[in-house]
Simulated assay, not measured.
Amino acid sequence: MSEEDPEIAGLVKCTVISCPNYFHKVLSQADEHIFFDFPSDEDVCATWKEKCGISAYHDVSNSKICSTHFRQTDYTDNTKSVLKPEAIPRENLGWMFGMPEVKLTKTPKFELIKEAVDTNERLVQRFEELMDEMKLLTEKVDLYKKKNENSDKEIFRLRRLIAKYPFKKKNGKIETNLICKVFSQAQINMLLGKKKVVWSYDDMAMAFTLRHIGNRECYLYLKDTLNMPLPSLSAVQRWVASNKS
């Protein structure tokens, strides 16, 4: 014996998909469930359709919703027989709660379902790829941050070092006390281009030592080619002669 269609048998299922309750068109049910027609107000009716998960264009002239989907505050009195004009089904909507509209007139084709699943899988895969890329980029950003921090520390160190050797101007030329740690005052005067330079005893002694550590050509190479601020060889010879007597 074939199963009889509920609507043909005079039964109308509650429009909420997850609801198991039926309403008999001819015989009134004497149970705890009361069934309500969809409201005539278009805006409220559209909201009912959305909550039930049916298309906005679905014909609901013979559709009903049972009382299990309404709250106590949706009724005009305690009998739960009359709904307020603005009442909306919110209870026991099951998995349909908050879901978009779904047409019930036709069963979705397998191809459409498979396409949706494949699309979802591709999106998940792309999301994972983007997360991996973001992880690599985050590691690079952290590396550059550390490099910047090291650079900032080095800049700070160099600035403190420079601060120990303040610049000062003299006769329009720049000199620093850093030079004083390497050259004597006579050598500095020579570097500054002064015509007359008075060499100290230490200057001449150093020049004499350099001359006799190497040879004449080596001394001239340091003085004339490398531009080392040194006394002339004739000045060194006069100094040696004056110190022998």
Rank of each mutant, 00 (worst) to 15 (best):
S2D: 06
S2M: 08
S2Q: 08
S2T: 09
E7P: 03
I8R: 13
A9V: 13
A9L: 12
A9F: 13
G10N: 08
V12Q: 10
T15C: 05
T15F: 03
V16K: 00
N21P: 08
N21F: 05
N21A: 14
Y22M: 15
F23M: 10
K25N: 07
V26I: 14
V26T: 15
L27P: 01
S28F: 06
Q29G: 14
Q29F: 10
A30Y: 15
A30D: 13
D31S: 11
E32W: 07
H33P: 03
P39R: 02
P39H: 02
S40H: 10
D43R: 09
D43T: 06
A46C: 08
W48T: 01
K49N: 05
K49C: 03
K51R: 14
G53I: 00
Y57H: 15
H58V: 06
V60G: 00
S61V: 05
N62P: 01
N62V: 12
S63V: 01
K64S: 04
S67V: 03
H69N: 02
T76V: 15
N78R: 05
S81N: 11
V82Q: 10
P89T: 05
R90Q: 15
E91V: 11
N92R: 15
L93A: 03
P100Y: 06
E101C: 06
E101W: 01
T105L: 03
P108E: 04
K109Q: 15
E111W: 07
I113C: 02
E115N: 12
A116Q: 13
L123Q: 11
Q125W: 05
E128P: 00
E129A: 14
M131F: 11
M134R: 11
K135F: 05
L136H: 10
L137D: 06
K140M: 08
D142K: 15
Y144A: 11
E149T: 07
S151I: 08
R157T: 12
R160S: 14
L161R: 13
L161H: 09
I162V: 12
K164E: 12
P166Y: 01
P166R: 07
F167Y: 13
G172N: 14
N177C: 11
I179W: 04
K181E: 05
F183D: 00
F183N: 01
S184E: 00
A186M: 03
I188N: 01
W199A: 02
S200H: 06
Y201F: 07
D202A: 10
T209L: 08
T209C: 04
L210P: 02
R211D: 02
H212G: 01
I213P: 00
N215L: 10
C218W: 11
Y219V: 02
L220E: 07
L222K: 01
L222V: 04
L226N: 06
M228I: 07
A235W: 01
R238C: 04
W239C: 04
V240A: 10
A241H: 08
N243Y: 05
K244T: 09
S245D: 12
